[in-house]
Computed example of a mutant assay.
Amino acid sequence: MQAWRAPAGRGADTGPAADGGPGRGGGMRIGLLGTGPWARAAHAPALGEHPGLDFVGVWGRRPEAAGALAAVHGVRAYEDVDALLADVDAVAVALPPAVQAELAVRAARAGRHLLLDKPLATTVAQGRALVEAVDAAGVASVVFFTTRFQPEPQTWIEEQARVGGWFTGRAQWLGAVFTSEANPFAASPWRREKGALWDVGPHALSVLLPVLGEPRRVTAAAYGPGDTVHLVLDHAGGASSSTTLSLTAPPAAAGAMVELRGVSGVTALPEARGDVVPALGRAADALITAAASGEPHPCDARFAFTVTRILATAETLLHSGTR
């Protein structure tokens, strides 16, 4: 992986903005791809507030939306992706997974570091192509699995991985996206198509896999209301886990939990505190560190590809009716 070094001063820049690009000074120059609710609520504020980033501009599939979001944050609205890539060191992506995978490959081939969202991709082919592009370019990648960048849950995950000896895990990740009034994500075409398996499934796996290891076998069943699905994993370390996922839970029943049982007893994932913007800021910290050190972050594109492969296997089982 190629290392990135923060410039000593803007006047000494030799990067993309040195020839008159729009960088505002200081830190890793980063652009945002995407203008939807998640980009507006999380990405743009996190990039704009981060002291180690120089938020350069926004590109979106709808130019008018890119212009509106860029105006709010005082940055440039780009009409051309390649023009944005020419002005930055890195990109943050807040787009549907299929679009993200395609544009992230393009950004990696241009030598840009990647702050991506989950899921990395919804097909194995797209996920593999992205990992290969990241490896070939030697760029850093961090995928924003929200729970992994919240301090209390992340500390708990690391502690349980050290403890080991787990017999079984149980997770529930229940959203009310399709049952709450005026939820900003309810109209998302990719969520309507892919459902909870792909939207909240990555969150559950991002907690279970670091503790229990990758699965040797995957079982999936679609029992319950709406998009509710159930996964059972046989993990390489010998433990099993069961997970229930849904975006059609009643609002009063929504929430997430993970419980582990093993030789040391019973423990549960602590409730996350704080807004998503600071968590995304910590993901940006991780990208800056990975780019500067050349050391991959645990939530890099390769880990996210493992999650994609598991979910793709589950989806195949669900569609085939195989249990």
Rank of each mutant, 00 (worst) to 15 (best):
M1P: 12
M1E: 04
A3F: 02
A8K: 11
G9P: 06
R10V: 13
D13M: 07
T14Q: 11
T14D: 12
A17N: 14
G20N: 06
G23I: 03
G25I: 08
G25A: 12
G26N: 12
G26F: 01
M28P: 02
R29N: 00
R29L: 01
I30T: 12
L33Q: 07
A41K: 11
A41W: 03
H43G: 06
P45D: 07
P45T: 06
H50P: 08
L53W: 02
F55D: 02
V56G: 02
W59D: 00
A65R: 14
A66R: 02
A66W: 05
G67Q: 13
A71G: 14
V75N: 06
V75K: 00
A77W: 06
Y78H: 12
Y78G: 12
Y78N: 11
D80E: 15
V81Y: 04
V81G: 09
V81W: 04
L85K: 04
A86E: 04
D87G: 01
V88A: 00
V88D: 03
A94G: 06
P96Y: 04
Q100G: 03
Q100D: 01
A101W: 03
V105I: 13
A108Y: 02
A110D: 07
G111T: 03
H113V: 01
L115S: 08
L115W: 04
L120H: 09
A121I: 02
A125D: 15
G127S: 12
V134N: 03
V134E: 01
V134I: 07
G138P: 03
G138V: 06
A140T: 03
S141D: 04
S141Q: 03
F149Q: 05
P151I: 02
E152H: 09
E152G: 11
P153A: 07
Q154P: 01
E158Q: 15
R162D: 15
G164W: 09
F167Q: 14
G169E: 02
G169D: 07
A171L: 07
A176C: 06
F178K: 11
E181F: 10
E181L: 13
P189E: 03
G195F: 09
A196K: 06
A196M: 07
G201F: 05
L208D: 05
L212P: 07
P215L: 13
V218F: 10
T219S: 13
A222E: 14
Y223I: 13
G224W: 07
P225S: 11
G226L: 10
D227T: 11
V229G: 05
V229T: 15
H235K: 06
A236C: 05
G237L: 11
G238N: 08
S242Q: 14
T243S: 14
A249Y: 07
P251C: 08
P251M: 04
A252C: 08
A256W: 06
R261A: 12
V263A: 15
T267M: 04
A268F: 00
A268I: 15
E271K: 10
G274S: 08
D275E: 14
A279V: 08
L280M: 11
R282V: 09
A283C: 11
D285N: 06
L287A: 05
S293Q: 05
P296M: 01
P296T: 10
P296F: 01
H297Q: 09
C299Q: 13
D300N: 13
D300K: 00
A304C: 12
F305Y: 15
L311T: 12
A314G: 09
E315N: 12
L317P: 03
H319P: 00
